[in-house]
């Protein structure tokens, strides 16, 4: 054991490793260089223990956004001749990004929204990283809001990971009024629309929207890399969904002075017209108002609600 150096914590080891790799010459460092430079490795009893520790650390670095590169002129695989370095330029922010107090307050809210679930840890560590861009006064204006996400869908984290790693996924999906089926898709984006989490993904040649609550199996990550999709294609798919929503109209009759009536803004007459993304979801929202709302059109929505309520009565008979 080297006398001058006390035992390093795991965080110290990761930090030293990062510094050594950053200071490395262009050709990178060999594993042997690394094991000789970072005291935690030097202190390991066996080669195998060093290797294991290094493998864990490589994953930790990559998880934390450090772009570790492996170079090997002799082999396509990561062998003993491999050399390691951190990609130049991976340690810089977009040049024109000037962060201000309001940006930071919003990012703080975005991280807090996770409320200790799922991606909370990544969101908070990302926020910490962003805070290195400067100290500023926090804004009281925004501190009065505390939005909380309820995204406890089991599929959320694996889908977010697949998006990050650009790989395809498979899951079983059930649309209302049809059988469940396995879908193999390239996930692109998770979006929050009308109170629902929606996955934007490429299936075959088409970009489609999937409601997370209708994914009824585990999400399996496939070995295939996801299909490349241009920003234009994504923008187009998003615009199509917005068009679709604005063309979906329902007319409702609302009983005056009831909660439903206030919910729809206390309309002058008894009728309101609304737009919706998904008829089955709208039916749920309307069934909650019970007898306070009656659907005038479309007929399909009225039928859906009637049969939904019949089923409720039936299973509680």
């Amino acid at each position: 054991m080297t006398q001058a150096v006390s035992k390093q914590s795991a965080a110290e080891r990761l930090f030293t490793l990062t510094c050594c790799l950053m200071a490395a010459p262009v050709i990178g460092l060999s594993k042997r260089d690394i094991f000789a430079s970072v005291s935690s490795y030097a202190q390991q009893a066996s080669e195998m223990a060093k290797e294991k520790m290094f493998d864990r650390d490589k994953t930790a670095l990559r998880d934390m956004g450090v772009a570790l590169e492996v170079l090997d002129s002799l082999s396509f695989e990561e062998g003993d001749t491999a050399r390691y370095r951190i990609a130049r330029g991976s340690f810089s922010w977009p040049k024109d990004f000037v962060i201000n107090a309001e940006h930071l307050a919003l990012l703080e809210l975005a991280a807090k929204a996770w409320n200790n679930q799922l991606l909370s840890k990544s969101a908070h560590s990302g926020l910490t990283r962003l805070k290195s861009l400067g100290v500023m006064q926090t804004s009281r204006e925004l501190s009065i809001f505390t939005p909380r996400l309820l995204a406890q869908h089991d599929s959320f984290a694996p889908l977010a990971d697949a998006i990050a790693n650009s790989n395809m996924v498979a899951f079983e999906y059930r649309k209302p009024d049809s059988e469940q089926a396995v879908r193999e898709v390239s996930p692109l984006k998770l979006r929050f629309i009308e109170g629902q989490w929606v996955l934007l993904a490429k299936q075959g040649t088409q970009i489609k929207n999937f409601l997370l609550r209708r994914i009824i199996s585990k999400v399996t990550s496939l070995d295939n890399a996801s299909k490349p999709v241009s920003d234009e294609e994504v923008a187009q798919a998003e615009a199509e969904l917005a068009d679709f929503v604005s063309n979906n109209k329902a007319v409702l009759e609302v009983e005056q002075d009831t909660e439903a009536w206030w919910h729809f803004g206390g309309p002058e007459g008894s009728q309101v017209e609304i737009h919706f993304m998904d008829e089955a979801l709208l039916a749920e929202d309307l069934m909650e108002f019970g007898s306070e709302v009656r659907v005038v059109s479309p007929e399909s929505l009225a039928t859906r609600i009637r049969s939904g309520l019949e089923k409720v009565v039936q299973v509680h008979a």
Binding site: R62, D63, M64, G65, V66, A67, S90, F91, S92, W93, L106, L107, L109, A110, A111, A113, W114, L119, S120, S122, A123, S125, G126, L127, R129, L130, S132, P147, L149, A151, A160, D161, I163, A164, N165, L190, R191, F192
Partner: peptide, 19 residues
């Protein structure tokens, strides 16, 4: 410090979408 990892970005982006 390095730029954000993809996972950090994804989680913050989803939070921002929500806002």
């Amino acid at each position: 410090p390095p730029v954000l990892s993809k996972r950090q970005t994804t989680s913050l982006a989803a939070g921002l979408d929500f806002l």
